[in-house]
Design a protein around this nucleic acid. Structure first.
Lengths: 201, 201
DNA sequence: TAGTTATTAACCGGAACGGTCAACAGGAGG
DNA sequence: CCTCCTGTTGACCGTTCCGGTTAATAACTA
């Protein structure tokens, strides 16, 4: 890939990246025309081929970008790990929300890439995705002080319920197409308040 | 469309329908080759064009099928409407799960169709989808006897949390690719037991 | 065997695609 | 004004793909 790409303004870079995410998220690798990505990004196909020597390189670049951003997000969301489970969940959603705002189609792109079967890229996709599959997810109950919760509460089930509801909420939000981070934060705060009212002593 | 299609065995019909759902769910209308659908269904392209006179007809047939199945499902899941909210939710998930099992890609197909912009089909899609958008969804709290729940419980928030968690669970299940209805039922029963333990008096 | 039906392989014209390249625009410096 | 350099593009090419047709074959029936 051409280093000149990094000399572009951040907006221009993001425009290209998001165009790539969008088109590759909407179609399989083979059915995603480079021209469509260029048009979406507001540049010509030739220029895109100037920055990335071919379609495969562009695709794998996007996949790496995706991994990098996700890793960064997980880091951020866990940065203030404490023993307040509600705070942790709140920060987790916040990080995800801002990620969705900056790269709206990245999530769908990564899902598509995960299931990509085209022999031209499949192997490289596995190679890039492999380490990131084993990564620490937040499906596992973080350590916490159980004394503050109501007696007899099944903490694992509580966490599972909250995790599932968060996923469901994010999914529901993404279905609408418009990501309104402010509204998401407000909604989620209310949900967390509800959880506190039923789970805490 | 050719009535001979209905003379086919149910398995053959479903094979064709599911092949259509799968391919159209994975790509936009224009980028979904009829040949790929035929291959996936285990028949030749010519035969598919024998049953459906062109691509558009096949697509709209699938969309109607989708609407019909969804309507049926909503009917089933609400058939035993009582005042037991947990029972209602359980039946709801059960209906959705069995629908996913029979038509694994139907959900993604309907989402794709909803956002389809190709002028060749967009108008007809709106026409078919329109009545079904206004349909009664289960996002609204059903009437229930509040005396059995814990004092001061916000029933709307409770229902919202349960609904979101159910969506999140279904989404998570569908991501795995393998729909194991038995496991889903078992999982969901445990989740509902948990809800009962925290919400009921 | 003859006739009817189910199913397909081969084909066609046109469109789309990845990738290349000569050309063009515009600014910098002489 | 000319010249060089850089960023950018339209036009082009060989190939593949796609929707749809049709003539031919397979399978079944009587």
């Amino acid at each position: 890939m051409n280093d000149k790409f990094y000399a572009l303004s951040e907006e221009k870079q993001n425009a290209i990246i998001n165009a790539g995410f969008k088109v590759f998220a909407g179609n399989s690798y083979k059915k995603s025309p480079v021209n469509e990505i260029a048009l979406e990004a507001g540049i010509s196909k030739s220029l895109l081929f100037f920055y990335f020597k071919n379609k495969k390189e562009l695709y794998l670049f996007l996949l790496k970008k995706c991994e990098e951003v996700t890793k960064q997000m997980l880091l951020e969301s866990g940065a203030y790990k404490g023993n307040d489970i509600f705070e942790i969940m709140y920060r987790g959603l916040l990080a995800k929300a801002s990620m969705i705002k900056r790269y709206p189609d990245m999530g769908n792109f990564s899902i598509k890439a995960y299931y990509e079967k085209d022999p031209e890229v499949a192997n490289d996709v596995r190679k890039i995705i492999a380490p990131y599959t084993n990564m620490e997810t937040n499906k596992i109950l973080p350590p916490m002080d159980s004394s503050q919760f109501k007696e007899g509460l099944d903490l694992n089930m509580m966490y599972r319920d909250m995790y599932l509801a968060s996923e469901g909420y994010l999914w529901q939000m993404q279905q609408t197409g418009i990501i309104d981070v402010d509204r998401m934060v407000a909604d989620y705060k209310k949900i967390i308040e509800f959880w506190k009212s039923i789970y805490l002593k």
